[in-house]
Design a protein around this nucleic acid. Structure first.
Length: 473
RNA sequence: GGCCCUAUCGUCUAACGGUUAGGACAUUGCCUUCUCAAGGCAGUAAUCAGAGUUCGAUUCUCUGUAGGGUCACCA
């Protein structure tokens, strides 16, 4: 038994049980407990509540460590509840000796029930406590009866174990979900019986699923490591989770972890539950992705890039440019694979196949002009002829300076042709010649990305394709 | 059902008892020299209801209503 000597230091804890994959609802309480500790120079402890041997599994425990590490929620101490049974037993014995608890004969009602359990002698009184987020709460414990605190002297039940562990670990701020409010009076009764000081409580609002009931695995809540595996940024996850149930006021929406620690105030958390909204999470994540340096962005993106692309010769020289193009479009890094599946990535590295109907732009864009496949081939030939005049060298565009191959110079060459032949017709055709797709980035950035040789080659291919089409038809 | 908690746009939320009730996401429209994306601008949209306190209630009190949580020899 160690009574905390420094009563000034705030000690919080996260006490998950490894009986399943934990989701945002669980980790949001960890986050707030972490914030309170860090903000006040206190300690944040982890306690694995694995006393339920039946349901606790090693893989779930491993996932807890993994998630905490991913989020960067470092803890200042860790205990496994299963390692503490001797301590629980000591308190149990003491309580029985003092007649504050007793061994009770039972008639088992369901399978696994024992004929003998340890019950707490309930003083049957009104318990009142002050919750940091809700204010005063008081409950009459009479209807709780003499509740069970242990299945046997070696098998404490949750209520006894938390109280003993929090006390011995020096936890003085119990920050947990609202679903524990009904348990709190029970815990306070045990604390009083054991002589433990009453900690401060903060019961956080529940994180809800779309249907406004408690978020759960059954409701589709994912383990946080799934978000990691989809290429969400931990800082974004923290940012978003922190804002369900709390915000600092003001009009800023995007925060770093350190900024939140600095601003966090447990007394300002919301009392009502909040829905976990994947759509907003994506937006927050994109904002954090946008803050990444080009190097960091590329590093993240490359872990999700389809392998067969990254082995191509064209990959290295073009990937930086692809990163900047894709930057506006991705909400999480794994989306690059969805884009790939849609056929929106491969053309950056490999020449596309053509479809004559797509090459020929829509009626609307033609603005009434007649256009045959042969006519379009001629226009592409002109574009190619003009583009060939540009030097191969890549480089920054300088107004009035040396001309190089980049999106500005390509645009300067193509623009006059587009003006005379029809913008829709020319720009569409060149773009589709380069991408093969109805929808893609503009032709100038594409030309810059794939380079002079490849641009000319693709326009040539499209031109040839159209001519062949003309002969056939 | 008992006990407990909660209640501002569809969602997350802001607002010393005095604001045209603000912002963000989503949504709609327009602009953005071809499409898409991004971006810009504009718009739609909320104080659960009823009493009371007050010169004045989103804000305080009560009642109702609705929602949620919890009622284990799980945690």
């Amino acid at each position: 038994m160690n009574n905390p000597e420094n009563k000034e230091q705030i000690i919080t804890r996260f006490a998950p049980s490894p009986t399943g994959y934990l989701h945002a609802g669980n980790y949001r309480t960890a986050l707030y407990a972490y914030f309170v500790a860090r903000k006040n120079g206190g300690k944040f402890l982890l306690r694995i509540e694995d006393t339920d041997r039946e349901r606790s599994e090693k893989q779930y425990e491993a996932n807890i460590f993994e998630t905490l590490e991913w989020l960067g929620l470092e803890f200042d101490g860790m205990e496994r509840q299963s390692d503490r049974v001797a301590n629980h037993k000591a308190y149990l014995e003491k309580l029985i000796k003092e007649d504050k608890a007793y061994i009770s004969k039972e008639t088992p009602v369901k399978e696994g029930d024992r004929a003998e359990v340890i019950r707490f002698r309930n003083p049957n009184k009104v318990v009142t406590f002050t919750d940091l987020v809700r204010g005063e709460i008081s409950v009459d414990t009479t209807d709780l009866g003499d509740f069970v605190i242990a299945k046997s002297i070696d098998d404490p039940v949750f209520h006894l174990a938390v109280v003993v562990d929090d006390y011995e670990m020096g936890v003085n701020h119990v920050i947990r979900g609202e679903d524990h409010i009904p348990n709190t009076p029970r815990h306070i009764l045990i604390m009083e019986a054991v002589g433990a000081p009453i900690p401060k409580f903060a019961h956080l609002p529940i994180v809800l699923a779309q249907d406004r009931t408690k978020l759960s695995k059954r409701k589709g809540a994912l383990p946080l490591t799934d978000y990691r595996d989809r290429g969400y940024l931990p800082e974004a996850m923290i940012n978003y989770m922190a804002m369900i149930g709390w915000n600092p006021g003001g009009e800023q929406d995007i925060f770093t972890k350190d900024e939140i620690i600095d601003l966090f105030d447990i007394t300002k958390v919301q009392k009502g539950g909040g829905i976990f909204d994947d759509v907003k999470l994506k937006w927050v994540n994109r904002e954090h992705m946008l803050k990444l340096s080009p190097e960091e962005y590329k590093k993240n993106l490359e872990t999700f890039m389809p392998e067969h692309l990254s082995t191509l010769d064209t990959y290295k020289p073009r990937i930086d440019s692809v990163c900047t193009i894709v930057r506006d479009r991705l909400e999480y890094f794994k989306q690059i694979q969805e884009m790939y599946d849609e056929g929106d990535i491969e053309y950056f590295f490999v020449a596309p196949l053509y479809d004559a109907d797509i090459l020929l732009c829509s009626e609307k864009m033609r603005k009434g002009k007649d256009l045959t496949h042969a006519g379009l081939a001629k226009i592409l030939a002109t574009c190619k002829l003009e583009l060939e005049k540009l030097p191969e060298e890549k480089g920054e565009f300088v107004e009035g300076g040396e001309v190089k191959w980049n999106k500005e110079s390509v645009k300067n060459v193509l623009w006059p042709i587009a003006e005379s032949e029809g913008r829709g017709i020319v720009l569409w055709a060149v773009r589709v010649a380069l991408s093969g797709k109805e929808k893609s980035p503009d032709p100038f950035i594409l030309a810059e990305t794939i380079g002079r040789d490849e641009t000319l080659a693709r326009i040539q291919r499209a031109e040839t394709f159209l001519k062949e089409k003309t002969i056939v038809s």
